[in-house]
Simulated scan of single mutants.
Amino acid sequence: MVILVTGGSGFIGSHLVDKLLEKGYDVRVFDLIKPHREDVEWIKGDLLSKNDLFRAFKDVEYVYHLAAIADVNIALSRPELCVQVNEIGTLNVLQAAQSFEVERIILASTTWIYGRAEGIVSEETPIPPPEHLYTATKIGQEYLLMTWNKHYGLPYTILRYGIPYGPRMRKNMAIAIFVRKAMRNEPITIFGDGNQGRCFIHIEDLAEGNIAALSERARNQIINIAGDEFITINRIVNELRKIFGEIRVRHEPPRPGDFRGAIISIEKAKKLLNWKPKIKFSEGLRKYVEYVRCHS
């Protein structure tokens, strides 16, 4: 079985590739950037090139579609590129999958689509109108897969990721910024009271959740894959204090647009996929700090 991972050289994609290879699958990476390891087939290509995609889809049975403009800052600074890659790129992937009679496409979506919902949200929670261009394109991707299934019968699985952290994460992500500031003994800025939070998920747990989604029980399903702890900004700082000792904190007024965050229900993933995260936040943060120290 050949499994194609679009965006397989990125943060999440590279860890998914690691896990797939570890479990004995034949893996092919479709990305503009070379994978971080040599023992995987790489098709250098662009989502906006149908010719590139058709080269990549030969003999493929399952597709993990992770390639996207995922940095919200790039989405705002280059909106046309964001819409083209995330929407038209996904349409091109669907057309290639249909042409090559792929068994199923597994989409990397995001819990950001729940917007400003508070309390507990599940896959049944109504999706509000998006407040960010990036979120709008992720909602669009989900609807493309669902309507394509209705028109052409191509099976899908939509995975709504919580906020991932861990080795190889982008340096402009909150946890990465906080860790490096702690290492340099620089003050960490907290906006508001610090009780806003997210259901962070360690990248290894997220990769395992993706593997679990190969199950036939995930066919034509939408599933949250997130951490089972709601981690506030204050909690992150306190965990860093356990590692580094005293940490200076600078408090600033709340930023416009900030929201408290929601608790993401993963009950469906537990029941349907027999999956749940194994790495507690305190352990995952320590592992990430060790990684940064080794690569500084």
Score class of each variant (00 low, 15 high):
residue 15 H to D: 02
residue 31 D to H: 01
residue 69 I to L: 09
residue 115 G to V: 14
residue 114 Y to N: 03
residue 203 I to W: 05
residue 46 D to P: 08
residue 183 M to G: 11
residue 291 Y to P: 02
residue 230 F to I: 06
residue 296 S to A: 13
residue 33 I to N: 10
residue 233 I to R: 00
residue 229 E to R: 06
residue 158 I to E: 11
residue 278 K to W: 07
residue 166 G to T: 15
residue 44 K to A: 15
residue 193 D to N: 15
residue 38 E to G: 07
residue 108 A to L: 07
residue 11 F to Q: 05
residue 14 S to I: 09
residue 182 A to R: 08
residue 142 E to K: 08
residue 272 L to W: 03
residue 171 K to D: 08
residue 91 L to S: 04
residue 83 V to G: 01
residue 202 H to Q: 08
residue 131 E to G: 09
residue 250 R to H: 10
residue 85 V to H: 04
residue 206 L to E: 08
residue 2 V to M: 13
residue 132 H to G: 02
residue 39 D to E: 15
residue 147 T to Y: 11
residue 292 V to Y: 02
residue 115 G to Q: 09
residue 262 A to K: 14
residue 5 V to I: 13
residue 242 K to R: 14
residue 76 L to Y: 06
residue 40 V to K: 01
residue 206 L to S: 02
residue 211 I to Y: 15
residue 22 E to T: 02
residue 150 K to S: 12
residue 14 S to A: 10
residue 170 R to P: 05
residue 284 G to Y: 09
residue 285 L to E: 11
residue 13 G to N: 03
residue 120 I to S: 00
residue 104 R to I: 11
residue 282 S to D: 15
residue 249 V to G: 03
residue 55 R to N: 15
residue 265 S to V: 12
residue 166 G to I: 10
residue 61 E to G: 13
residue 273 L to P: 04
residue 155 P to S: 02
residue 229 E to M: 04
residue 258 D to P: 03
residue 8 G to T: 01
residue 103 E to S: 15
residue 96 A to R: 10
residue 276 K to D: 08
residue 177 I to V: 15
residue 164 P to V: 11
residue 116 R to G: 01
residue 269 A to D: 10
residue 58 K to C: 11
residue 49 S to Y: 01
residue 62 Y to H: 08
residue 122 S to R: 07
residue 10 G to M: 04
residue 162 G to V: 08
residue 204 E to H: 14
residue 123 E to W: 11
residue 155 P to I: 05
residue 207 A to T: 01
residue 84 Q to F: 13
residue 40 V to T: 02
residue 240 L to W: 03
residue 68 A to I: 09
residue 169 M to A: 11
residue 98 Q to W: 15
residue 223 I to V: 10
residue 116 R to L: 12
residue 217 R to F: 13
residue 278 K to A: 12
residue 100 F to G: 03
residue 215 S to Y: 10
residue 239 E to N: 09
residue 269 A to S: 10
residue 257 G to Y: 05
